[in-house]
Each structure stands twice: as structure tokens, then as C-alpha cells.
Design a protein around this nucleic acid. Structure first.
Lengths: 216, 216
DNA sequence: CGGTAATCTAGAACAAGTTTCAGAACTGCT
DNA sequence: AGCAGTTCTGAAACTTGTTCTAGATTACCG
């Protein structure tokens, strides 16, 4: 726990560029993970079962993904990538950037709704992740940011204020998802909260809004 | 996991009003929990050690707190209560309600900074909690809401819009805390995000702001 | 005080995440 | 093909959360 002494980390597309069979194994594992998660959420993703069902030894599973949380965060990366592409194909139709972001996030939300157990497993892993998973969680965060920025469809590069607004939207997105998944908020409430936070985009838009109290 | 068949739940101040010794036990447990959490975060709170160090059998610990997450969420309730009282004593000095909330939350944040491991344990438990902990998590949420509403110092009752803004602020607060705890954001960044989201309060204030795009 | 039910204790037992290890299989290289 | 190093397998072991059980204590009530 104190030192990271592992030499190679095939899970990261870093140093050694994975042979074909390794890539196949990795995909099989991720697929199994998503399947089990869809069935019963976080608890249903049991490392022994993932290993067996992927036709891989337990030790190998742990070589590819050093912990259950790593595995599920990687699964989320995978799913988010799909979602990003899907969302790209049907860009939001609204006028204001804020409304576009809200529309996009609600689409994503409805997609997650279709597999609530999977969503549960992924989001719980994401927020439970400790420092050792930071790089992977960061990747997920960047993906989410990309989705939001895509929806904003800005002309130029985002201002620092807009970036902060995007971060706040991400925070709200994750946390609202959690409260919905744990049954403490309705979908209607999530929708309201998303729409509320998305106002920040229009408020912080240079030129738009009223420039009221911008100097925090 | 599927059914709750336990007859009595002394952990809840509900039906049987706990004898003095039971109250003492409960406090000892919560104290131990906070102590261990302060030392090494979520992982350092080990049920056997909590039990032993509180002078209580493992089975008793589980009777008071049906899981580690329950225990840590209860610990958070406890700490939040303290914090609420402390914050009450030194009300925020800013002019705008939004600025007051931001100031208050940053105070709370700095308090948590003093025991980062404890904060880690509590927040991780909070976001990891599943449906079986919903009532307790809800209590924490209500406490947080109370703190924020206190800071707003409204004249009348909050509008639905303001309540939504408060929920969004809570979302941001929790999630920003997590990103800071897992080392993915600096304190400065947290501060910026908190201040950014707190603008929502002034934006949604009836009468204040510019009434721009209020009709969502 | 005596009896009865609830609570508490000590400890074993179980479940699932994680680690470890010896040997088999595979890879790349000559 | 033959060899060296890595990767993969299979299985056991270890850790920690959780459950279970039998007996001791305690609380309540007449």
C-alpha cells in the first residue's frame, strides 16, 4: 500500500503497446465487467467472477486492473467514450449554450437510466476512488469536460470563468447522479438541478447576461 | 440485504430511548471512529479495532451501526452538528447572500482541512453509501442545507429556485471536496468553484440580479 | 427478590478483495 | 530450434467487513 513497485502496467496504453491477444483480453474483461455491473451494480462485479467469466486467471485480471475500482473506472472510460461519440452524432438543438449543455446532459442521463445498475457501479467506483486511481479518474473527468464543451459549441477557447462553470457543472452532474442512484432524488429533481446549474454558463458568457457581480 | 428483520435499532434515536450506558457506548464508538479516521482515513477505520478500542464487542458495534458506512455517516452527522454550531457563532460578514454562503463554506472547508483523513473517511462513506443508508445520508444533507440557508440569512422562506440553487451548491460542495481529497484539485480551485456556484444564489434572488433568462 | 426478555460478549465462521507463488505457456531473439 | 525473460494460470493464503451462536449480563416488572 505504501510503495508502487510494479514494473509493468499493461492496463495503461503507455510503455509496451499491448499485443493483440492482450488487447483482446483487456476488452473481454471490460465487457464482462460491464455485463456483471448491468446485472447487479457494484456488488455484482466480483473479481473472481470477472476473471472466470473472461477466461482469465485472477492474477492476470489484477495485472490488467490493479483493483476493482480501477476496473470499474476503466469501464466508465469505455462507456463514456461510446456516449461521447453517440452524443456527437446528434448535437443539441437549443439556442443558448447553457440550454444545449442541459439538453446534452439530460440525454446522457437518460442513457444511464437504461442501465441503472451499471451506472451505479461506475459512479460509485468513481467517487470511491482514492489517490491511486487519480490518473484514471482524471481521464474520465477530461472526457466529461469534453462532452460539455462540445455541447457549448463556443466560438473561441473557453475563458477561465467558463472553465470553472464547466467544473461546477461536472460536480453537480456527478453528485446529482449519486443522489438519484441512491433513491434520494427524483429524475425531475435532477433535471431541475442540471438546468439550474447550466445557467452559470450563460451568466459567465462574455457579452451575454448583465455583467452583474462578475468580479468575485 | 433484502429485508430488514432486526427488531430494535438502538442507533436511531427512535423507538426505545437508549439507556445512559447505551448512550455512553454510542458516544465512545463515534469518538473512536473519528479518532481512527483522523489517523488514516477510511481504511484505518477497521470495525474490529473500533470495537476493541471502544470496549465493545464486535456484535454490539454492528448492532449500533449496521455497517462501516453507517458508522462513518453517523460520524459525519456528529461532526457536522459541531460545525453548524461553530459556524453559527461567527456568522459570515459579507454583503450578498451568495458571498456569505461562499464564505461560510470556505470556513467549513478550512475546518475539514485540519483533519483531511477524517474528512476523507466521512465524505467517501457518504458518497459510497447505498440505499440502505439513505435516511442517514438524508439527515446529513438536511444539516448541510441548514448551514447554507443559515448563511443566506433570507428574509422570508426560500423560493423553489433558491432551493434548487442550494441543492446545486451542495452537489458542488461534496464533489469539490472529493476532488480535493483525492488530490485532483487544489484548494484555490475549490475556492473558485465554490465562489462560482454561489453566484447562483444572487442570480436566482428575487429582485436582485437582472432577471435575465430566469424562465427556464 | 425472582423471572423473563433484551442486550452484550467472545469467538468462530463466512464472503469477497487482494496478494503470493510455483510452474506452464508464450514472446522475442539469435 | 533453443534460450531468456515475461506473462499467464491455478490455487492457496491473507485481510477485513459481516454474520452467527452460545452463554453471561443487564434491564425491567411484579
Amino acid at each position: 500500500m505504501t510503495t508502487e513497485s510494479k514494473a509493468a502496467r499493461p492496463a495503461l496504453p503507455a510503455s509496451p503497446p499491448l499485443t493483440e491477444r492482450q488487447e483482446a483480453r483487456r476488452r473481454r474483461i471490460l465487457h464482462t465487467s460491464a455485463k456483471l455491473a448491468s446485472r447487479g451494480g457494484f456488488d455484482a462485479v466480483q473479481m473472481r467472477e470477472v476473471a472466470e467469466s473472461s477466461g482469465v486467471a485472477l492474477g492476470t485480471l489484477y495485472r490488467y486492473f490493479p483493483s476493482k475500482v480501477h476496473l470499474l473506472v476503466a469501464t466508465m472510460q469505455d462507456q463514456l467514450q461510446h456516449m461521447h461519440e453517440t452524443l456527437r452524432k446528434r448535437p443539441p438543438s437549443e439556442q443558448d449554450p447553457g440550454a444545449r449543455v442541459a439538453q446534452t446532459l439530460m440525454r446522457a442521463f437518460r442513457a444511464l437510466q437504461r442501465e441503472p445498475h451499471l451506472a451505479d457501479a461506475m459512479v460509485r467506483a468513481l467517487t470511491f476512488a482514492d489517490r491511486s486511481v487519480s490518473p484514471e479518474v482524471d481521464t474520465v473527468s477530461r472526457l466529461t469536460t469534453a462532452i460539455i464543451l462540445d455541447a457549448m459549441r463556443l466560438d473561441g477557447p473557453p475563458t477561465p470563468e467558463q472553465l470553472s462553470a464547466v467544473r461546477v457543472i461536472e460536480h453537480t452532474w456527478h453528485s446529482a447522479l449519486i443522489t438519484w442512484l441512491s433513491g434520494r432524488a427524483s429524475i425531475a429533481q435532477v433535471k431541475i438541478d442540471i438546468e439550474t446549474v447550466c445557467r452559470l454558463i450563460d451568466v459567465t458568457s462574455p457579452g451575454a447576461g448583465s455583467e452583474a457581480g462578475v468580479g468575485a
